[in-house]
Design a protein around this nucleic acid. Structure first.
Length: 570
RNA sequence: GCGCUCGUAGCUCAAUUGGAUAGAGCAACGGCCUUCUAAGCCGUAGGCUACAGGUUCAAGUCCUGUCGGGCGUACCA
């Protein structure tokens, strides 16, 4: 519908160009949008406002001229008007509004999907939590956000791949291995005090027990080794990865690719990427300035191999190799992102915790230097989650190892509530998650409110059958009976759904879907309370059933995009 | 200090990416069930969009500055 209005205006403007109001080289850029205020019609354009200068006319006068030149539009547009500073508002006819109902019934679960992203290949990398422990709430939020961005992009026709980057190389894996080994010794009565920096949490004991169960006393030696045996490290990581996979599965999140950092080392890709940067003259031996504004007692000037990231928009150059010659994590990350870039994606999207924000520029800089494509990598930051229960914050401390895991929360509140709630805020904003509220069966709880609207639609179907009435089918000629303002509100909302999906996908802003669904659910509840669906009048009844059926379908489609169930009964 | 990010009703947050009179929910107050789920609905009240400039026909949104919160700030990942 929007495109029809769009074409209508363009045609009219061309007509005015012939009359000499616009010069031949005037570019017609204008918007057609949905006014927030329904008194302003179904669509409005700012064409007269934007083009007033080119026409050398006051905006309102130009608007009048445009309106006068608009062609006849048969059934679709009932009226138009010039309003405000020079907007042109279009009011759709009832007939045109009603068209959305058969469209929705026909498209079914595909309504809202489109092909505007067809041909685009996009990779979303998310979660990528270190395999050194169970996932916490923040990981869960990143997981849900990434998954839904992927779903949205698929809904507009993109080819999407979900990838998890496993940090299975580096110091923290040894810390895990050492922690497990110490607990393992303790299981055999060989108490060793846990050194500074080791993981104190209970889950480490669990891993140690699993290790003993599998291997018995095989890793017990006369003395605790300085480095944990590689097999122990691998066992511990695999155990953690198992947890992570299980937790993600609980949230119905599945990855296409699990990419191992270690494989980069094994294939020599890191040294290779360093050499490539070297060839381009972007590496040098240097000493970084001490960072300002932060007291660093241990700072000392150190010569390092530095990448000239400052040539590509970063603040300072970044170390690729440590002073002992080994590669930094950053070096591995460059190799990883280059590998992704060479897999022919049109866009790479990373979902990162907000604490990694300072890292974006350097990775983008490296990627730009290596590929020459500055916009390839897009990073979305996800802020932290604060856990509440009945309005009271749940205290957590990572240091003492007392924190609530993602699994505990999902098991208590359920995947639907967790997913919906995590999506309710824009990723950039902190999020308060209240366990009690997320499970409440009242309209304070947004997820319940939306699911209840869907269930109500289905309760009407059940009533229909109980009354012995025939199953419903849409009949176009009945729809003329939908004339109530509440019905028009619903029709307008329904017709917006594909635009909302498109917008949410393009902007990568999943929270637009829950907000839309809340709006639709509210309009439906209002309607349901004020009007009887199963009216005596068969035509009116048919029309209303067609309408609420469409509402039910759209709510279900919206929830499906969020990975949330649409129950038929509460 | 610098970078990123956020600042909107008492609280938690939206706002079609520059559009018209800034919207919801919670909390407060007042109403609606012999009728399809009251697990719901309706109404009242609540605002100098942190502040000051600038760009524009039009600014919560863009640019500059100030104030305030969060995150980050070499050989951790």
């Amino acid at each position: 519908m929007r495109s029809i209005i769009d074409r209508l205006i363009t045609t009219t403007l061309e007509r005015l160009r012939h009359e000499g109001i616009f010069s031949p080289d005037t570019a017609f850029v204008f918007n057609v949008e949905r006014p927030r205020d329904k008194n302003h019609g179904d669509f409005a354009t700012n064409a007269a406002l934007v083009l007033a200068k080119a026409a050398r006319l006051p905006p309102r006068l130009l608007a009048e001229k445009i309106v006068a030149a608009l062609p006849d539009t048969q059934n679709d547009v009932e009226k138009w008007e010039v309003a405000g500073p020079g907007f042109i508002n279009f009011f759709l006819s009832d007939y045109s509004l009603h068209t959305i109902i058969p469209t929705i019934w026909q498209a079914g679960s595909q309504f809202g999907h489109s092909q505007i992203g067809a041909g685009r290949k996009i990779q979303v990398e998310f979660v990528s939590a270190n395999p050194t422990g169970p996932m916490h709430l923040g990981h869960g939020r990143g997981a849900v956000t990434g998954d839904v961005i992927a779903r949205l992009l698929q809904a507009i026709g993109c080819t999407v791949e979900r990838e998890y980057y496993i940090n299975d190389a580096g110091a923290q894996t040894l810390v895990l291995g050492r922690s497990v080994l110490i607990r393992y010794y303790a299981l055999f009565g060989r108490a060793v005090t846990l050194p500074e920096g080791c993981y104190p949490a209970e889950y480490v004991v669990e891993i140690a027990q699993a290790l003993r169960e599998r291997d018995g006393d095989r890793w017990l030696a006369a003395e605790l080794p300085a480095e944990p045996p590689p097999a122990v490290v691998d066992f511990a990581m695999a155990h953690c990865l198992g947890w992570i996979r299980d937790d993600l599965a609980l949230l119905n999140i599945h990855f296409d690719t699990w990419f191992s950092e270690r494989s980069l080392h094994q294939r020599g890709l890191i040294a290779q990427v360093a050499a490539r940067l070297e060839e381009k003259g972007l590496i040098y031996e240097g000493i970084l300035e001490p960072p300002k504004g932060k007291l660093l007692e241990e700072w000392e000037p150190r010569p390092q191999r530095l990448f000239r990231s400052s040539q590509f928009g970063d603040e300072v150059d970044r170390p690729l190799q440590k002073s002992d010659g080994t590669f930094t994590y950053f070096a591995a990350d460059i190799a990883y992102h280059l590998d992704k870039a060479e897999r022919n994606f049109d866009t790479l999207i990373n979902i990162w915790g907000a604490d990694h924000g300072g890292y974006i520029k350097r990775v983008q800089a490296a990627l730009t230097a290596l590929t020459g494509k500055p916009g390839l990598l897009e990073v979305r930051l996800v802020q932290m989650v604060n856990l509440f229960r009945g309005g009271q914050p749940v205290r957590m401390s990572k240091r003492s190892g007392t924190f609530v895991t993602l699994r505990e929360v999902v098991e208590e509140a359920g995947s639907d509530a967790v997913r919906f709630w995590f999506l309710l805020r824009s990723a950039g904003a902190n999020l308060d998650f209240d366990l009690e509220l997320a499970m409440a069966k009242t309209n304070d709880n947004p997820i319940f409110y939306v699911q209840y609207a869907h269930a109500r639609v289905h309760s009407v179907w059940r009533r229909l059958a109980e009354k012995g009435l025939p199953p419903h089918t849409v009949q176009r000629d009945q729809l003329a009976r939908l004339t109530e303002p509440d019905e028009r509100d619903l029709l307008r909302l329904l017709s917006r759904f594909p635009e909302v999906v498109e917008n949410a996908a393009l902007e990568k802003e999943p929270q637009k879907i829950p907000y839309y669904l809340l709006e639709l659910a509210a309009a439906f509840h209002t309607y349901y309370n004020g009007h009887r669906i199963l009216d005596e009048d068969a035509d009116l009844r048919g029309a209303r059933l067609s309408l609420i059926g469409a509402v039910g379908l759209v709510i279900a489609n919206g929830l499906t995009l969020l990975g949330v169930h649409a129950p038929e009964q509460m």
